[in-house]
Design a protein around this nucleic acid. Sequence first.
DNA 1: TAGATTGTTAATCGATTAACAATC
DNA 2: TAGATTGTTAATCGATTAACAATC
Lengths: 210, 210
Amino acid sequence: MKKQKISDAVIHRLPRYYRYLDDLFNKGVVRISSNSLGDKMGITASQIRQDLSCFGEFGQQGYGYNVAELRAEIAHILGIDLGHRLIIVGAGHLGHALLQNFDFAKAGFQVDSAFDISPDLVGTTIRGVTIRSMAELESYVELNRPIVAVLTVPQNVAQSLADKLIGLGIRGFWNFTNVELSTAVPDVYFENIHFVDTLLTLGYRISHRG
Amino acid sequence: MKKQKISDAVIHRLPRYYRYLDDLFNKGVVRISSNSLGDKMGITASQIRQDLSCFGEFGQQGYGYNVAELRAEIAHILGIDLGHRLIIVGAGHLGHALLQNFDFAKAGFQVDSAFDISPDLVGTTIRGVTIRSMAELESYVELNRPIVAVLTVPQNVAQSLADKLIGLGIRGFWNFTNVELSTAVPDVYFENIHFVDTLLTLGYRISHRG
DNA sequence: TAGATTGTTAATCGATTAACAATC
DNA sequence: TAGATTGTTAATCGATTAACAATC
């Protein structure tokens, strides 16, 4: 195992490795070689071995990888076993859909609470999570110290809200607002989800097909 | 302008260019140089000029780029002006949220219809789009020939539904089911949206932070 | 005109793939 | 043991950045 900086390209492939290994694990597959995993995923065996070598030695010559073990190793690398606490800010259609359907626990996150301005929503409970008023946001975060915030609020309040939350200790944003957030504060991470970008990419391919 | 294959890296940057140019356009900015656009976007001026040169010559020496013009050129490259027709299959929480909030027109798509199995939803109308029964899907697609389908259905029916839709002429899938779809049919494109991947990436960064 | 900035070619950098000795 | 497959080093490929002549 070489000591090195892990490239973004590698980091972005890790969740996909995890998904495939989790799937194999659930199907009861015990072992897999880099070759057959590569075939399944449409990438080279070389790339898989190279990627994994950034983090350790997880395989065995002549055998390959134990699925359960490699799955657990990657889960560990991704921090899935850490149970980071998270809040959802904005419980409109999208926030509600995430709360209702998304398996946060499977990604290693625990949903502490959700917040919305609408009086109709405040006080209601979805899958065991009670929606609180935005007025309670600051004191709640100060007291409970969640580390990640899911932002499903209107665009115009996104950056100011993010700045406020960073001040209160939030260090990661799963940002669905279609605004690219930024900060001067170090060690704060943003995952900006731009739905429209993926649809535009699809539009490009459809337009230039064949 | 060199004649060449456009790399995936370039294609994936186009929507982001479009977003920034659209923003500048809406703010009334008339001209911009590759240098200042690069500063805003956090990339090099070289990369912008190199990327654009794949598609044509859109600037002017000593001046830079006319914002309105470059925005329109990129919109054209992305096919935003083509008004592709699209259907939404599955009108549960996520499908409903998209129908309610997402600006399909701005991405160059026109929502023809939506489909769901739930009798409670069938017949209701959201933003002018009537939700039809899944039983009508096949005949509807045959008759109206939409080109793209948004999939917001349960995982277990995703691939079989995709196969059926491909047979009916659908050529692009905006796939939210967390299953990686595939097909042997040529010139069919998938944009697989894996929410969980981006959250796992965030989890990785939070776990390994400075 | 002089300064600014393009489009493109050349240089660099990093990521992917291939090869292979080590070894289970 | 012999065959299979790893982890790692070396070779290749492609993408990014730098440089600069052309020119508005």
